[in-house]
Nucleic acid binder design. Structure first.
Lengths: 235, 235
DNA sequence: CCAAAAGTGTTTAAATTACACCCATGG
DNA sequence: CCATGGGTGTAATTTAAACACTTTTGG
């Protein structure tokens, strides 16, 4: 059935465009950042915006997201998770464009971002100091932050934002940055260690001007697939 | 900026269609059900499927979802929440159609569903006995179930599925149906009452052949907006 | 020896679990 | 008086929260 011809009366519906917008989170040991590009094409030329673009008809949606990010920022093969689709009628000045928002987490230090295609620049912005963004991009970022907060509370997210080996204080800073709270050092360590998310590598920091911290790594072997049953209402 | 002309080279992107598919959950005191329609139009004519349709270019996405449901099932003014967008290249035989999935919860007894437009029938199916659905609808339903499970664990969802006044056992059966678990009666009552989600109406069941249960109602006055901070990893 | 961040334990309170019997009604 | 589902309390365990001082390194 994959080759049937479309009845003519349906043609009117095939006039929309779909774009993808990516919220790429990075972390630099202090603050959460997101990646923006400086648009070198209309609309909103010469504005900083989320790396996003119209997508062609030939790729699966999830692949398009990866491709768009690649083509604008050089970031290759990044795992991206869909957030939701934004479809206000007037959100794009060139016509009816639905945009599917994605987010991803990367260790900023592991990747070199480089503006490409019609992106004139690409750079990290602290999440607390974002410029006014065009389209509904500010709304998208807000939504992505919410989503990330939810996610991190129930899954071992976040290690993607740290170097392969990291200290517990780095991890704690990351959690605090994402959740916008502060944790007690001892309780944080107790809790995070009890989950089995991370493993002691036996290594230590070197060259620091204070007591060197132990280095941990993400425990990829643990099985994270079991979603807890039971109910809990944390309002 | 809302009237700029689109450069010709972008026209190629404006050839996609977007559809909406709704997963409408209902509950009949025993099992969770979802609403399907019997398709009277191609493609997949004469299949049971999610109530969904291509959407026009003139409405905001969220409104389109409501409208589509209305026009196929007569269900009016139902609050729907977006799940995610499905965009495999070959998911629709008539061309490139991205579908945005929504879900909603309704008290089946409060509404009369009636097939309309090209829907020839509309009926409730227990979620455990769904037929094979066309397109990627089975995948969408699966995703919606997951989403609902997540949601109910952190928000006072579910009252939408019960009559205005309900008993605690009805509520418990609902939670058990959604979460696919069983709860201890006493612990369930303790927990649910302690949340302040529900209020004792002072009323009782009548005409039942056993001790009549107290009737409760949803506490709309409580403030459900504060999302808990802190971390919790319930894997 | 000073500065800077790492590391560590205990007590208290709160939440969760497990568990069994009596109650009110209609037939 | 029987069947049916409604309703209730407590003890034990687990989890979360609060809180302050010592350790290791480089300069």
């Amino acid at each position: 059935m994959s080759e049937s011809k479309r009845p003519d009366n349906l043609n009117q519906y095939f006039q929309a465009a779909v774009s993808v917008d990516n919220v790429v989170f990075g972390f630099d040991n202090e603050v959460l950042k997101i990646l923006l590009i400086y648009r070198g094409a209309e609309p909103y030329k010469n504005y900083w915006a989320l790396p996003g673009d119209l997508i062609n008809l030939e790729s699966d949606l999830d692949n398009s997201a990866v491709n768009v990010l690649q083509s604008l920022t050089g970031l290759d093969d990044i795992f991206m998770e869909q957030i939701r689709t934004f479809g206000r009628v007037d959100r794009h000045p060139f016509g009816r464009v639905y945009t599917v928002a994605y987010y991803s987490l990367i260790k900023s230090e592991d990747y070199k971002v480089s503006a490409q295609s019609w992106a004139e620049e690409a750079d990290w912005f602290p999440i607390s100091k974002l410029p006014e963004l065009p389209f509904d991009h500010n709304e998208i970022v807000e939504f992505a932050k919410q989503q990330l907060k939810m996610r991190i509370r129930v899954q071992p997210v976040g290690f993607e934002l740290l170097p392969k080996y990291f200290t517990l204080s780095e991890l704690q800073k990351l959690y605090e940055a994402i959740l916008e709270t502060e944790f007690d050092v001892r309780n944080f360590r107790k809790k995070i260690l009890s989950t089995g998310f991370i493993l002691d590598t036996g290594l230590k920091q070197t060259g620091v001007t204070h007591r060197p911290a132990k280095l941990y790594k993400y425990n990829a072997k643990r099985d994270y697939s079991i979603i807890s049953s039971g109910m809990n209402f944390d309002l």
